[in-house]
């Protein structure tokens, strides 16, 4: 029971990470109509920039603004030079151009930081674990991630539902032409949305640093999962990104944690581990296929 609770928390933590990435991605797609494969690169850039500042200054907390600013700056740059040219293009051009960006960013990171993973130092307050309920010890840093993720979700909820920018964002994800017709500076709105997406990606990247290794390719691994979240949740829907993000995070974590053990019940341990691991990896894709077959536009498709 304790084990299940612990894995549920792990799933929640992975889920809010996916949400941070998927929220930006789904808005960028819903409002600007752009498939951005390079979203994972912004995540990676946030992780590297933040970690570099954290290690140089010795302060974990200074890494946060560094990661955010770096991801947002690169985001603005990418939006202004590449993405802006892709609004009117078809999906194929968008996929290719942003795929090219992945290659470019990965190599630039290798040139600057090398291929070896680097590690983000964790402040001492986060060392060890705390007892949440009797018998359940949990690392406080993971709790921080969950808290930050939920805070961002609440913040986004207010931003989207209570502000003028949010109103435009909502209008834009249901009907792109309507926003243009309202006489809004669409270009500015796009830049803001893309920048916000980049910011969230950078945040997710830096916060993941102490848990996973910061290395080239980290963006692609999570990118595919993020896309699955966006598609299952329904393109353009923040709510969908939240529900699908948490849901997938939990499902994926549970499969990885318990499937090999279950399989060991009726096969050789080494086989059970290998098969369990890969079937778990297939899990989210299988889930996406099933959801799309039932609801071709995802769970909370914006605009019907």
């Amino acid at each position: 029971m304790i084990l299940i609770l612990e894995q549920l928390l792990n799933g929640l933590q992975y889920g809010v990470m996916l949400f941070l990435l998927a929220a930006g991605l789904t808005l960028i797609f819903g409002i600007m109509g752009v498939i951005n494969l390079a979203h994972g690169s912004l995540y990676m850039i946030g992780a590297f920039a933040g970690t570099w500042v954290a290690t140089t200054t010795g302060s974990f907390w200074l890494g946060i603004p560094a990661g955010l600013i770096a991801a947002a700056l690169v985001g603005f740059l990418v939006e202004a030079t590449v993405i802006r040219k892709l609004y009117a293009r078809d999906h194929l051009d968008q996929v290719l151009a942003t795929f090219a960006l992945i290659l470019i960013f990965n190599q630039m990171i290798i040139l600057i930081f090398g291929r070896q993973p680097i590690f983000t130092p964790l402040p001492e307050v986060f060392y060890g674990s705390i007892e949440i309920i009797p018998g359940l010890f949990y690392p406080p840093y993971r709790l921080l991630i969950i808290a930050v993720g939920l805070l961002v979700a609440v913040g986004l909820y207010f931003l989207i539902n209570r502000t003028r920018v949010g109103m435009l964002v909502r209008a834009g994800s249901t009907n792109r032409d309507m926003v243009r017709a309202l006489g809004v500076d669409v270009r500015l709105l796009y830049t803001v949305v893309f920048g916000l997406g980049a910011l969230l990606a950078g945040l997710a990247g830096y916060m993941t640093g102490p848990i996973l290794a910061v290395q080239v390719g980290m963006g692609e691994d999570i990118l595919l999962a993020t896309f699955v979240v966006v598609v299952i949740g329904g393109v353009g829907s923040i709510k969908g990104a939240f529900v699908a993000g948490i849901g997938l995070g939990v499902v994926d974590t549970m499969l990885r944690a318990f499937l090999p053990t279950i399989l060991r019940g009726f096969m050789a341990p080494s086989d059970a581990d290998a098969i369990g691991a890969s079937v778990s990896s297939m899990g989210i894709f299988l889930l996406m296929a099933i959801v799309l077959l039932i609801r071709p536009k995802g769970l909370f498709a914006a605009g019907g």
């Binding site: 797609f29 498939i35 999906h91 996929v95 595919l224 896309f227 699955v228 598609v231 393109v235 894709f285 996406m288 296929a289 799309l292 071709p296 536009k297 995802g298």
Partner: peptide, 11 residues
């Protein structure tokens, strides 16, 4: 559309 791109990738 984008769902087709993603589902072929997923499979």
């Amino acid at each position: 559309g984008v769902q087709f791109i993603m589902i072929t990738l997923a499979f």
